[in-house]
Design a protein around this nucleic acid. Sequence first.
DNA 1: AACGGATGCAACCGCAGAACG
DNA 2: CCGTTCTGCGGTTGCATCCGT
Length: 358
Amino acid sequence: MGHHSCCNKQKVKRGLWSPEEDEKLINYVTTYGHGCWSSVPRLAGLQRCGKSCRLRWINYLRPDLKRGSFSPQEAALIVELHSILGNRWAQIAKHLPGRTDNEVKNFWNSSIKKRLASLVDVPALASLVDVHNSKPPEDAADFVSLNVNPNTFILSNQQDQLYFSPSASSVLQSFSHDTDFKPNPSNENVDLIHHHFPLTPMLPTLSNTASFDPSWPLIPFVAPKHHVPNSSNEVVQDDKLVNPTAGLNPYEYGPLMATQTVPKLSEILQGNLCNMPLTSVSLENINPLVSRLSSCFPISAGSSYSHDMHVAPNQMEFIDAIITSMPLSSSSSSSSLSALSSGQYITNPTLPSSSWDP
DNA sequence: AACGGATGCAACCGCAGAACG
DNA sequence: CCGTTCTGCGGTTGCATCCGT
């Protein structure tokens, strides 16, 4: 293996840094700034390459580093951000003050991944990890849903991402019960995570099989006024969804009861879009998503836009939150919806948009 | 106590893109 | 423009430590 160009010019030391080397680097950088890293080792009196100095400073010596164990809140935030950003550790680390990309990456690989692994059966996870670590072909299907618990993981070929359903919140719980973790009461994200993590949605799988995940939070639905069951296997009891696996179109029934299971986000979105009163999104803009979703579900999207349908306020909040919390939402809700419909993003519906500031 | 596997993490590598001359 | 250098990033490695036997 060849070394970096700056390392070939002179004999450089490698491996762990000694306290003396650290002191030299700290003294130099705090006094003069790093400037051009390639000249730092010479000026600081270090027999290291500039790249090594930079890495040591950024990952270990910087005064603003937090160090120490990750808090459960930080862990939850990492899981959340990873579900959105994938392995873009530098981007994730920007949301965690005092943490480096290297630290976040190591934490993910050593701790979170294992905890998530404990949530699913081992052979399934193995295939998941293999798939996730490989680059999907360009022409692959938009989604590769894994044959585990389809509500637990979903893979997108757009960003090589692993998505988690709210069942992943048990990861957070596992961290909370871990005595290694030191809660950080000053973390301003505590409330955010506590309240919003359980609401993390997932993108739809390309499956029209009815499904549900008992861990999904309660998300109320309001049935269309005029709905008439159109197939023999649609069953309504007391105007409430009883069991999505019984062949129902769960988005057409409601409200759900606390004791009942809740459908996938795709079903939720379908229900919301069908009831959408066009307050914030035009039909043109939602068409890509509707057409995609309708390809998965046996209803006609075109015939479902009815202005007199009931729309619960929290339904619109839910959809609006999804739309506005997307990274691209500030420029174009159309592109955001397109991105969602093509599987590019998964987002926390109630995450404040400020969290996405670059 | 000794050993070996597992784990955590600092550090390195190669690559891509930006900056520079 | 174009070649070179620098910077930043993600993947990987290697070693110290931990832990179970």
